[in-house]
Design a protein around this nucleic acid. Structure first.
Lengths: 205, 205
DNA sequence: CGTCGCGTTGACAAGGTTCAAATTTGGTGG
DNA sequence: CCACCAAATTTGAACCTTGTCAACGCGACG
């Protein structure tokens, strides 16, 4: 699964990011905006704790969430000069902020040459390609199931999936309405595929 | 619009590709496969004439078309070792085939350094991101309208849109069924938004 | 001239959305 | 610790968009 790869790549960048002189930690309260679509992409970010969503809005308010960024994930590093998404904190979140230039320089000087930036963008592309299949060709139940698998594989925990985001967030990620997401989860619960724990969901499979 | 950018980038690569020693032209009959998902990504391709679709299949046959490649477009150049999509010719198609290695070398020696490969992948990413919004948050009519605008902007012609692909291809690109695409086009015709010409569609706007 | 692939159209079914209400959860203050 | 409130979630019922199934038309081609 691409998500695994994304993680291992992030670990590499993790070590790399730690060496950056010009990185600093910042806190963002729940719902706070980190950067905005079309805004200058001066910094890249890495989640220290918490979770971030990146999304795009249509003029009438419809929202498509591009991805969720969990602990360790790097995001907001653009090839161009501006951000293509808005990013905000799903819960109270702490991020490491790195000057774009500084991170790029560190990357080119490290092991894979410029391959790290290229690799990071390629991972985004792979994720987007997989997500297009989900959005275009899967039904509601499959979408939610795929989402849970993705979240499970991105987390170390064996039998639990922690979902920091709301039903609405999940819906806007999967191209559904929040009620539909809720119904799918209820159905899985009724069919003993999982247990829902208020803040946590444990899959019994 | 990203499509414009994609085109101008392709023009750059066009010139570049022309300099490649190890490129050769190949013909593929309608419906023929150029490469397959998971297959070794030894070559990159550029459409000389005709059109190509790249897509992914679910195990039960559902198909998500990732993109259509028209004259001038470069595709099939992967960062990794294997293709992530299957590609086949929509109509009888002629492509320039370039050894991956050869193209990459030419790229690193050219103007923007490795930026050309990075730029190409970034353009794919931008396209995918836009397409996710379409797939996740637009209704059938909006999807078809957006598709027609995309095709229009990718073609030089002022008032006509040539659609080499079938209704089924369009549907699998937009996350719809072919009947729904047909109905949307009929509605646009009925509302005088366009004229349908058998093989061609001209937009009156 | 018959067949085949493709596109259009109609009638109906179904999955997902919408709207509304009930219920649970989490936070806050007494 | 408990009561209360706001927000999030769940659930139900009606509705609508899109999918499904089927018939028909058209042009290409043998």
């Amino acid at each position: 699964m691409p998500i695994k790869v994304l993680h291992s790549a992030d670990r590499r960048l993790d070590a790399l990011a730690n060496k950056c002189v010009y990185s600093s930690a910042l806190k963002f309260g729940k719902g706070t905006e980190l950067f905005r679509e079309r805004g200058e992409a001066e910094y890249a970010y890495q989640v220290i704790c918490g979770a971030v969503r990146t999304y795009r809005l249509l003029s009438d308010g419809r929202r498509q969430i591009n991805s969720f960024h969990l602990v360790g994930d790097i995001f907001g590093l653009e090839n161009g000069a501006t951000h293509r998404f808005t990013a905000d904190a799903i819960v109270d979140t702490e991020v490491r902020v790195i000057r774009r230039r500084s991170l790029l320089d560190a990357m080119t000087n490290e092991d894979g040459g410029v391959n790290n930036l290229l690799g990071l963008i390629t991972l985004n592309l792979v994720h987007a390609e997989n997500h297009m299949v989900l959005l275009g060709r899967k039904n509601a139940f499959e979408k939610v199931a795929t989402f849970l698998l993705e979240m499970d594989q991105r987390q170390a925990q064996p039998d639990k999936i922690h979902l920091p985001m709301s039903r609405r967030d999940i819906a806007d990620y999967l191209g559904l309405k929040l009620e539909t997401v809720s119904r799918a989860l209820s159905k899985m619960r009724d069919e003993r595929m999982l247990r829902i724990d208020g803040v946590r969901a444990g899959n019994s499979s």
